[in-house]
Design a binder for these strands. Structure first.
Lengths: 349, 349
DNA sequence: TTGTACGCGTTATCAA
DNA sequence: TTGATAACGCGTACAA
């Protein structure tokens, strides 16, 4: 069985105080005289007391748990976000119960009910599997990051402006036609705005453009083939034009660049490229790739801020729920590197 | 304040059973008649019961929590391990409380005492900050992964054989001199055996070799400079020899490859390369990099197995602690790709 | 198969 | 500034 723990009872017997006073030593030490504080401190030391937050949680109703559901952790984006979330422990003191979702609604629902059973005070959801309507119905403060968020609070990058910035960078380095390569992301996902932002910029500036929707869901080697086919397609369709390629993330961008370099031993002058995310692959590619940064630390920070606000509200005697979900937009940052350099062209002025 | 929850009390009043019977419905349903199971199931539904594992934890003394301390999550290796650990939830049902250590003993100690306060049943440690002796002293089952492990159970890759395999691959593709590039990793860290394995292979096979210890702790751009210097050094020192380079991980390998390709527009024929880890960068590099795989899923699986074994022992009435820490070694796997291809040379037979 | 009574270790309420 | 007592919600001998 379990080893008997040293509890407030032993401390109170040893010091002659009541359990209540011992409890106060932890939660409101100033209400004891300095002398008595010391007595209790000594007793804790002598008896080897270890605090028990499980009992504290049950009695106080506060767990300081936040549940997190990420789709996975092998994609850099998710693990970086989780990294930043965990590091907010120093600021807020919340502990994180983490699940890696597996895209199946049934199991993710199981994860959520497990989290609720542990009386988490809030949830941060990056997984796309469960609808925001259902998430809102669980009666726990929720913040989502870069996913469908109609009925819940959320933090997203400014994807629309990100798309514009990418098109701007490509346009600025003299591209004749802008190509956006993405997967067929549904319109309710925030990342879809990268497409609309890109298109809108082209429309307003009268720039020839094309959006290519590719299914990247296969294994890497298949994606290489698809990329090579895409390059052949572009070379044929736009032989004399400088092509500005905006890829939906830095991994596909690095792959696209590698395919180009394998074909031409360099980034040919009729190509310019911009990725998205500013994940480490972009800076560490064979040619450093220009990209649009998602400010992951700010995204994580804002998510916590919105969540903490809601959780604090819940702790009041008469919590007033939000009338409308809060949707926070974090700016993206254009990171120019070598794939959008103006090389041969002379600036016309 | 907190909203009154539906408890066993309400269920028992509604159904006419005692709280005990309701408890049994969850923990030993077969001890109730099917009919009564149904009655309780209905009541739970009608009253909207939500289970409370906090109370259950306090009463039973079992939290099903495992504490995890990783150094960070931006390095692919750690996030992949965590990913695999989280996915064992399906098999064992343990939940993971995760902290990202920050290399400072004081704060990591704070994390550990926080974990202990939540009555975790076991710990998995990837962080290097706290000595295994101290970790062992906390009286909780511990398993470490790829770190100093004298006084605690551990799971590590077969780093020694990994070093041998790397040397073997390079030797097999006709290299005249083998170079191992690593950082100055202390001998008590398992990864140090990559160096000794490499050296031992060279010694036994009479192969000229050199170990280069480089400090990669700076920012990426500094590491690029250091890599370029290293290449110049090697080109000068071994001008007519085919150089087989074994790098301590796939990221430095990809960087090394990029520097070579930038210099020569290809992987020159007097170079061959092997990385370590088989992380995605190796397969996705400009030239797919041969590497030594760390079987991350097996590492995580073995770690859980050893931990679960210890935790089960703790739950017995008379737990018998391990006499000696268990140290499990997981084999590495040589992954040949393009950077160890036999190209110009004719096989001699 | 079901129930009684107590325990888990802490916090909250009210009184002194 | 301190204490007695009752929660918090569930598990578990032991008894029936």
């Amino acid at each position: 069985m379990r080893k008997k723990e040293v509890t407030f009872k032993e401390i109170s017997e040893y010091t002659g105080f009541s359990k209540t006073t011992v409890s106060r030593y932890f939660n409101d030490p100033d209400s004891l005289t300095l002398e008595n504080q010391q007595k209790i401190a000594d007793a804790l030391e002598v008896l080897g007391y270890k605090e028990n937050k499980v009992a504290r949680m049950l009695a106080s109703g506060k767990t300081e748990f936040i549940g997190v559901i990420v789709p996975n952790l092998f994609l850099n984006y998710y693990s970086e976000i989780l990294n930043k979330l965990l590091s907010t422990y120093e600021k807020y003191g919340y502990k994180f119960l983490v699940f890696a979702g597996n895209e199946q609604p049934e199991t993710e629902r199981k994860y959520i009910s497990e989290l609720l059973a542990y009386k988490i005070e809030g949830m941060i959801i990056l997984s796309h599997t469960i609808s925001s309507e259902e998430l809102a119905s669980y009666g726990v403060p929720v913040v989502s990051i870069e996913r469908e968020d109609k009925y819940i609070c959320s933090v997203n990058s400014d994807n629309f402006n990100g798309g514009e910035q990418a098109a701007q960078m490509l346009s600025d380095c003299g591209c004749d036609v802008l190509i956006h390569i993405n997967s067929d992301v549904p319109p309710e996902i925030p990342a879809h705005k990268r497409i609309t932002g890109f298109k809108e910029f082209c429309r307003q500036n009268n720039i020839a453009n094309e959006v290519l929707l590719v299914d990247w869901s296969g294994v890497f080697s298949e994606n290489v083939v698809k990329t090579e086919e895409t390059i052949n397609y572009l070379d044929e369709k736009y032989p004399d034009k400088r092509k500005g390629i905006f890829l939906s993330n830095d991994n596909t961008a690095a792959n696209f660049l590698n395919c180009l370099v394998r074909k031409h031993s360099c980034l040919p002058d009729d190509y310019r490229m911009v990725g998205f995310d500013n994940s480490s692959v972009s800076a560490e590619a064979i040619i450093p790739i220009s990209t649009i940064e998602q400010q992951i630390d700010k995204i994580a920070g804002e998510a916590m801020e919105i969540l903490v606000m809601q959780m604090n509200e819940q702790k009041k005697r008469r919590p007033v729920p939000l009338k409308e979900p809060v949707h926070k937009i974090v700016p993206t940052v254009a990171i120019p590197r070598d794939t959008t350099k103006n090389r041969e062209i002379t600036k016309q002025k």
